[in-house]
Structures are given as C-alpha cells and as structure tokens.
C-alpha cells in the first residue's frame, strides 16, 4: 500500500512540480489528477533509477533519493522522531547537491486543534523541519516556511490513521533561485 502510494507519487512527480511552480499564482491548484493505474511499472524500489529521464533536482529525483517529501508528527507535537530525522538527513544531503534550489516547508495539522492554535502548531512543525535541515548544513536562506494549520488535510477522515497522515511537514520545491 505504501509502496503503491510512493509509485503514484513518482509517476505524478512532474505534474506535482508543475503544480508547485504555479503556487505563487492564485487560486491554489486543484489536487493532482490521479495517476494512471500502474500497469507496466516495475516493482518500486526506494532508490536508484526507476523511470526513464528523472530530472536531476526535481521532486521526483528528491523522492527517489530521500524516499519521501514529508515527515510526520505525533499529536500536538513538533518533535522530529527518529524516522523523521532519518528522512531529513537524506533530504539535507540531497538539497546540498542542488544549492540553487529553494524549498518551502509546509506545516500541517490534524483536525483536533482549534483554528488559530493549529496555525501556530503548523508553523512550529515547519520551523522544526527547517531548523533541522539548517543544522545538517543546508543554507537557511533557501528554506522558507508556511503553516496551513488544519486547512489542507491529506486524508479526509476522523480516525487516527487519517490524522497521522495529516500531521506532516512537507518539502515543496520552489525551483532554482538563480
């Protein structure tokens, strides 16, 4: 299940890139169209070349290398656990390969906090990710943060499984700075 999701993320990487590049514009882009069924795709692996023509420095490239574009948090917490730190270690290494790339860290929350509190909590989460990346040697000037509080859930559900996927910090590539 998880690998399938990853595969979909891989295949729609280019579409996501396009969506992200548009983010400066209004309105927010619609969610990416569901990727076509993974008919003849090879069994996904975490690293290594998967599809032909992975653009270096692209979201697809980052996900191939890092394994994910996001880290997850416990309820009402902004502490980076061991999984999150391992992901961000790889992300920092990857980001250092592409020093011209700028990223925005989105902080998100589940629905179990009030509106303003969740904006603050999402801000804390985004800044926890940013601080960690800086500590790993990524130039802070490349990393902006934005909190969405509970405004942009990834999964629509009122259960722990959904909540756990919504409490996240997501790295969004914003293109080259030069």
């Amino acid at each position: 299940m998880r690998t399938n999701l990853k595969l979909i993320a891989l295949m729609s990487g280019v579409a996501l890139m396009a969506a992200c590049a548009k983010k400066e514009e209004l309105p927010p882009p619609p969610p990416p169209a569901p990727a076509p069924a993974p008919v003849e795709a090879p069994k996904p692996v975490d690293t290594g070349p998967v599809t032909p023509a992975v653009v270096p420095g692209s979201l697809q490239d980052m996900i191939n290398t890092v394994g994910s574009d996001r880290v997850f948090f416990a309820y009402d917490s902004y502490v980076l656990d061991a999984d999150a730190r391992a992901t961000l270690d790889k992300e920092a290494a990857w980001l250092k390969q592409y020093p011209a790339l700028k990223v925005a860290i989105e902080g998100h929350c589940d629905e179990r906090g009030t509106r303003e509190y969740n904006l603050a909590l999402g801000d804390r989460r985004a800044n926890a990710v940013r601080s960690y990346l800086i500590a790993q040697g990524v130039d802070g000037g490349r990393i902006s943060t934005i909190s969405y509080g509970k405004e942009r859930p990834e999964v629509l559900g009122s259960d722990e499984e959904s909540w756990s996927k919504n409490r996240r910090g997501v790295t969004v590539l914003q293109g080259a700075s030069s």
Binding site: Y78, E116, L119, A120, D123, R124, A126, N127, A128, S131, T145, I146, S147
Partner: peptide
C-alpha cells in the same frame, strides 16, 4: 517577515491585537 494571524480589534477600534510568528514561536 513571518506569519501574522489571529487578529482582533481593541474595543476602541484603534488597534489590532494579533499573533506574530518568529521562528516557529507565536
């Protein structure tokens, strides 16, 4: 430089009280 949020007017309408975020601290 960072997020400002949770605004509300003072009773005399002459000021707004709100939160400003600084490095994840509101």
């Amino acid at each position: 430089p960072n997020m400002s949020f949770a605004p509300r007017f003072a009773p005399d309408g002459n000021s707004v009280v709100m939160s400003l975020s600084q490095a994840g601290n509101a």
